[in-house]
Design a protein around this nucleic acid. Structure first.
Lengths: 211, 211
DNA sequence: AGTTGTGAAGGTATTCACAGCG
DNA sequence: CGCTGTGAATACCTTCACAACT
């Protein structure tokens, strides 16, 4: 039985929430409701899609550590330490070089690319930075599957095409350009304008609903 | 009849796509399908939720400028040039100070805040920057409704609480912390780890589906 | 031909209601 | 009793199929 996509996305976030509560002995679905806003029955339903290893839930709630582990196992976020690269090391891209949020996540940054050779040499990071023309060599060699796209909007589509050629299957698109990609490749747009648009749409929907 | 939330989010993105094609006389639903990956019938259905002012669609397709206008009107994104502020001017937050994507969007940045007074004085932007304690004064004065939250994770919840007190109704949360907010306030999480998790979940779902 | 537009059908996700357990 | 877990009912969204128009 396939896991519904909204369920998978909630579980992925839930795993992060559980990390923040790993000190507690147990957390109940209603506590999770309070933290996330998702109704408790939705949470229980979501969890029911995982095959639970027993001892994950008691009468007091769920064991945070065990549950987080089970989620990551089912969603294939656990074993495979998925490798990511940053493409475009301007202000935004270079901000991620010292982003701490990757620690403890199932993702790791292992390369950065920029067409400007100067930037590549000047910037410092815990992982190597390369000029863009080396993508074709580096990405397959390290088995990098995800790219974080921070290039200027005019170069977004061309860069995405090149990344896909190199074997990237998932792109987190920080540019305001919308990307066309073949099927089998996934794009997640995190343009700030989209995020604001989604907020405004939801607020508008709420207000309309009241009438 | 209320507009379904997924429809509203697609329309919001579509408006941006139309901006990029404002030079063309007409764009058809199948062209949009090619650009976005959404099936053409979904797009037509989405558009059918707007009350169309006639002359928006012809036999050749939609008038990009008129359609974008109609979308923004229905979603309340048009008239109200929605004002936003950046909270937290570290590496990530300050990267947005020179972000070009706001031009032509229905959103505008009009203030930045940071608790570090030095940063506020050193950084340059097209809009004024203030120390955090001025939020209570500035946000209501300019009618700012949206905040882009880029503070360190430990301060995320406390800062969000303060913003809501000042009248903010929508928060774009760039921190890895999950926020609890009262109903009526909307949060959009754009943590990069979430984005990668969503990608991985979708790719996993695709592969599972093939079996 | 090619387009939009839309009621109706179909599929998916959410919500409910209650069984089962400690 | 409060908690989890889950089949069944409901609500929601997407997809289909075709009418209407140029």
């Amino acid at each position: 039985m396939p896991i519904p996509r909204p369920t998978a996305e909630r579980l992925s976030q839930l795993a992060r929430l559980l990390d923040q509560h790993s000190h507690a002995a147990a957390i109940s679905s209603s506590e999770i409701e309070h933290k996330t806003g998702w109704p408790s029955h939705t949470i229980r339903k979501d969890i029911s899609f995982l095959e639970l290893d027993a001892d994950i839930s008691t009468t007091a709630g769920y064991n945070p550590v065990a549950l987080a582990k089970a989620i990551r196992k089912t969603l294939n976020l656990a074993d495979t330490d998925s490798k990511c690269c940053i493409v475009g090391l301007g202000r935004l891209g270079s901000a991620f070089l010292e982003y701490s949020g990757f620690a403890g996540s199932p993702f790791s940054l292992c390369a950065g690319f920029d067409s400007n050779v100067n930037r590549v040499e000047i910037l410092k990071a815990d992982f190597p930075l390369y000029p863009s023309f080396k993508m074709k060599e580096i990405i397959p060699r390290f088995g990098i599957k995800f790219a974080i796209l921070c290039v200027p909007p005019q170069q977004a589509q061309a860069t995405a095409d090149k990344l896909i050629e190199c074997g990237i299957t998932g792109i987190v698109n920080f540019t305001p350009s919308l990307l066309s990609v073949p099927s089998g490749i996934e794009v997640e747009n995190v343009s700030i304008i989209d995020a604001l648009g989604a907020l405004a749409a939801r607020l508008a929907a709420e207000n309309a609903h009241k009438e």
